[in-house]
Design a binder for these strands. Structure first.
Length: 572
RNA sequence: CGGGGUGUAGCGCAGCCUGGUUAGCGCACCAGUUUUGGGAACUGGGGGUCGUUGGUUCAAAUCCAAUCACCCCGACCA
């Protein structure tokens, strides 16, 4: 490719709305353009990078016998209604009607579609296991798209789905996928960590699932790592404990205390001169259970935070979110002094965090404006409740075995799940086993955010001069840079070198523009080509060129005639 | 959805408070000359429904209202 024919614009300035390095650089170097909130156009360079990533994915997946398919981007509502996700996925899924008033959506994920494909073909256990994957566009109407390709609404995703007659077989594929993922990310130049995760709305609770994270300060997920025990988990599901807590002993019957306008735990603790951990934080959450509105009151120690994902898991209520003031009104509760005592409202399910000792004494909200209650023990004073781990893990916690843990942030670039028979059952996709009885195959599903992984590569490898592509992803491996392209000798040399490189099957670009040297250097650095071959004045004297490695900045003077050969053989 | 903010040339911004010539600046773009080892210099040039609609006014980028879009902070996920 000649630079003069590459339809690209690079920028010296950083767009204001780009918050993170990968977004800034991908834009500045002319890889992406924004077309709307969370929507991006890809330039010819970006398309090459995406194709390179796809090649890696395809190669690794075909090694473990996965088959590539392509499912339609728009899917009919009927399919989603079979699994109940037409409502469950809510606004995440963008829904619309066609001219005949039929409901459709742009696929945010493809479990239903792939099961539909599967059930039209699969009849017998003899056809299993099978692992189907695709690399295509997904659309999720994210609540808040941000960070460029990191959280776009429209994005390229590789999704794979496997089908099995038994758990052992599923486990085998799961492990094979786990290994394939490790190789894929390694080939992309990413340093990933596999992390135990929460299946969320996708899977049955309790199924095996791992997230692959790139550690980065700009990551959106909080991870808990225990080096001593060798595990890492998303803080959404990590169970940890506080190293030491002191509880108040019970002093007597419950007692109403006036607390005026002190609502938050901090205010309350200051006003009553009590430790925050001796107060109970009560949070009302609303969600859906079997299509009906459902409420939870979640309680934890005053200086802990409620983890909504954990509440969802323990309550089987979906789409859980904080209740607003109107909800509190309907429930007859008072904002600021919400509490679980004498709450005979049977619509509210009470879950109390396991760190709240049953016999200990706490200060809780009274549901009466201006008052709290002292001397509350949950065992004596709350009629029915469930106790479970529903708090957020936090700094200074220890593992359940008492070992120390670290908190760090990660970018989730891949996720693998065991889905069980949730979708095959819902969509009645059965096969006959070898006794002639029908069974619902177990499924696994496996995703990689292609655009996000590429952004993570930029995030992880970029330096102050721009992007640094690993060879496997680079849109061009070599950039030939003639410094005076108006000088015929130099221009001709560049042209010959370029043709020779192409002849050797090398992925090469020549910067044939008539611009100053600084411009070419800056652009080549910014766009992150791994190797630069610079042809300057010294070429005219001794036929030498300079080979420069983008990542290390190392330079070497080489005779023009054997520089390509040496590069090809990686003899530097 | 809630809270905060911004819309002026492809990008980054000034002008708005205090209404009044032809709406500016830097980068980018076009032509020419001179340059060429780290985003060159000079000369000349092109590009704007000032987000949109309505209102106030002799007069609106500027004041008012509505609306749309985008961004930032919180609950979602590859």
């Amino acid at each position: 490719m000649k630079y003069s024919q590459l339809f690209i614009q690079t920028f010296k300035e950083t767009p204001v709305d780009a918050q993170i390095i990968s977004h800034q650089l991908l834009h500045r170097a002319g890889f992406i353009q924004k077309s709307g909130a969370g929507l991006y156009n890809y330039s010819p360079l970006m398309v090459k990078v995406i194709q390179n990533a796809m090649t890696i994915i395809r190669e690794e997946l075909s090694k473990i016998n996965a088959l590539e398919v392509s499912l339609s981007l728009a899917t009919p509502a009927e399919l989603w209604k079979e699994s109940n996700r037409w409502e469950e996925l809510g606004d995440l899924m963008i829904q619309f009607k066609d001219r005949l008033d039929r409901d459709l959506c742009l696929s945010p994920t493809n479990e239903e579609a792939v099961v539909d494909y599967f059930r039209k073909v699969a009849k017998s256990y003899k056809q299993l296991p099978v692992n189907l994957f695709q690399i295509n566009t997904k659309f999720r109407d994210e609540i808040r798209p941000r960070f460029g390709l990191m959280r776009a609404r429209e994005f390229a995703m590789k999704d794979a789905y496997s089908f099995h007659v038994d758990k052992t077989c599923l486990d085998n594929t799961y492990t094979a996928m786990f290994d394939a993922y490790s190789r894929i990310f390694e080939r992309m130049g990413l340093n990933v960590m596999a992390v135990e995760a929460d299946g969320g709305a996708m899977a049955d609770s309790g199924a095996k699932t791992h997230e692959f994270h790139v550690l980065a300060d700009t990551g959106e997920d909080e991870l808990i790592v225990c080096k001593e025990e060798g595990w890492a988990a998303n803080s959404e599901m990590a169970q940890t404990k506080r190293p030491d807590i002191t509880y108040n002993d019970l002093q007597g019957p419950i007692e109403l205390v006036e607390t005026k306008n002190n609502h938050t735990i901090q205010e309350l603790s200051l006003f009553l001169n009590e430790k925050e951990s001796h107060c109970l934080k009560s949070v009302v959450l609303k969600g859906k259970k079997e299509h009906k509105q459902a409420y939870i009151m979640a309680c934890c120690l005053g200086d802990d935070e409620i983890n909504i994902s954990k509440c969802m898991k323990h309550s089987a209520i979906t789409q859980l979110e904080c209740a607003n003031e109107d909800d509190l009104d309907t429930l007859g509760l008072t904002k600021g002094v919400v509490g679980p005592v004498k709450l005979d409202h049977k619509e509210i399910h009470i879950i109390i965090d396991s760190h709240v000792k049953e016999e200990a004494s706490f200060i809780v909200g009274s549901n009466k404006k201006g008052f709290h209650i002292k001397n509350v023990t949950i065992k004596r004073d709350i009629a029915t409740y469930q106790q479970a781990d529903i708090r957020m893990a936090k700094a200074h916690d220890v593992s359940m075995n008492g070992n120390s843990i670290d908190l760090c942030r990660g970018i989730e670039v891949g996720h693998i799940f065991q889905l069980g028979d949730k979708y095959t059952k819902a969509l009645k996709a059965s096969v006959l086993d070898h006794h002639g009885k029908s069974l619902y195959p177990l499924m696994g599903c496996y995703g990689i955010g292609v655009g996000r992984a590429i952004a993570a590569v930029v995030e992880q490898l970029a330096d102050e001069n721009g992007i640094v592509w690993p060879k496997a992803l680079a849109p061009f491996y070599i950039a030939i840079i003639p410094l005076k392209s108006k000088d015929e000798i130099i221009a001709n040399a560049a042209q010959r070198l370029y043709e020779k490189a192409q002849g050797m099957g090398m992925n090469v670009i020549v910067d044939d523009r008539h611009v100053s040297p600084g411009f070419k250097f800056k652009d080549a650095d910014l766009m992150g080509f791994p190797i630069q071959i610079i042809i300057g004045e010294t070429f005219k004297e001794e036929e030498s060129v300079e080979v420069r490695w983008r990542q290390s900045g190392k330079k070497e003077k080489v005779n023009m005639h054997d520089c390509l050969k040496k590069l090809k053989e990686e003899r530097f």
